[in-house]
Design a binder for these strands. Structure first.
Ligand code: SF4
Ligand code: SF4
Lengths: 134, 134
DNA sequence: CTAAAACAGGACATAATCAGTCCTGTATAG
DNA sequence: CTATACAGGACTGATTATGTCCTGTTTTAG
C-alpha cells in the first residue's frame, strides 16, 4: 500500500484535532476517538510536532492542539510530514532512479498521475474536510 | 512504493513485445533490452502467460509474443495482472477494511484518486505507448 | 514539595512484502 | 538425442511496516 497506516493515522489525528481547535487533547483521547494504537500515535504526534503541524503541551492536563488554522493544513502536507514525498512509481519521484526514464514512454504517465494526486490532496484542507458531510 | 518493480518490469516487457508484434522474443533478449534481471523476468512472464497477455513458445527458438493486439492491452491490465488490484489507501480498495470509512470525510478523496488513476492507466494502450514520442 | 499525569525519544520486536535466485523438469527444433 | 528455451516451485536476504516498551522530562494540583 502506498499510504502507510502511519500516515493515515496522522491524517485521522489531525482531522480529530481540527474538530476541536483551541482545545488541548491528550494522546489517549485521540487514540480512542480515532481507533489508533496509543503508543504508535504518540510517535506519530512527535513527528507532527517537529513538522509544526501540531503543538504539544506537556505536564498534567497536557496534550496536543493544532499549531495552525485547519484551513492552512492540507492532506498532502500531513502525509508528506510522515512518509516524506512519495509517488506511485519511483521514476515519478526522481527520474534518475530509472535509467530508462529519458526514453520510456510510460514515464510521463506516472509523472502526470503524481501531479494529479498531489493536486487533489493539496485541495483538501482540514477545515474543508471537517466540514464535509458524509 | 505502490507499483512494484515486478509490475514495472512487466510493463517494460509488454512494451518491448509491442514493438515487435508477430515476432517471437526470448526472455534473454527482453531482459537485455529492458534491463531486467533474467530469471526474475522469467517468473513475470509466466504470470503474463496465465493472464493471457502474452503467449509462450517452448523449445529451441522459443520465446514470447503478445497474445493480443497491443491496442487491446492497457497499462492497468498489465499492472493488475502482476499485483492484483491496488489503491493508494486500503479503504479505496475495500471500504470494509476500515471501520471508519462510513463516516470518514477523507475516504471519498481516496476513492476519487483511485478512479482517476485507473482511468488514466486504462487510457494508455500499448499501441498508443509504443507510438508515443519522447 | 511531591506525586501523578502527560509528552519525548530511543531501542527493540515481529511480520509482511519485495526483489530476486536456483534447481529440476518439460517441450521442441534440428 | 542434445542443446536451447520455457514452467514451476522452493528458497533467501533485505527492506519496510507496524507497533511496543522503557526511561526520562515537564508540569500542575494538592
Ligand atoms: S515507467 Fe519507464 S521510466 Fe518509469 S520506472 Fe518504469 S521503465 Fe523506468
Ligand atoms: S481515509 Fe478514512 S476511511 Fe480511509 S482508511 Fe483512513 S480513516 Fe479509514
Amino acid at each position: 500500500m502506498y499510504v502507510t497506516r502511519k500516515a493515515d493515522y496522522a491524517v485521522r489525528c489531525v482531522l480529530h484535532l481540527s474538530k476541536y481547535p483551541e482545545q488541548v487533547v491528550s494522546v489517549n483521547d485521540i487514540a480512542k476517538a480515532m481507533h489508533i494504537p496509543k503508543s504508535f500515535l504518540a510517535k506519530i504526534l512527535q513527528r507532527l510536532v517537529r513538522k509544526n503541524i501540531v503543538m504539544s503541551i506537556r505536564g498534567v492536563n497536557g496534550g496536543f492542539q493544532l499549531s495552525r488554522n485547519p484551513k492552512d493544513i492540507n492532506l498532502l502536507e500531513v502525509i508528506e510530514a510522515i512518509q516524506g514525498v512519495t509517488a506511485a512509481n519511483i521514476c515519478a519521484l526522481d527520474s534518475k532512479k530509472c535509467r530508462l526514464s529519458s526514453t520510456c514512454s510510460v514515464h510521463p504517465v506516472w509523472v502526470g498521475i503524481r501531479k494529479e494526486i498531489e493536486k487533489r490532496l493539496r485541495e483538501w484542507s482540514f477545515s474543508r474536510l471537517a466540514e464535509a458531510k458524509r
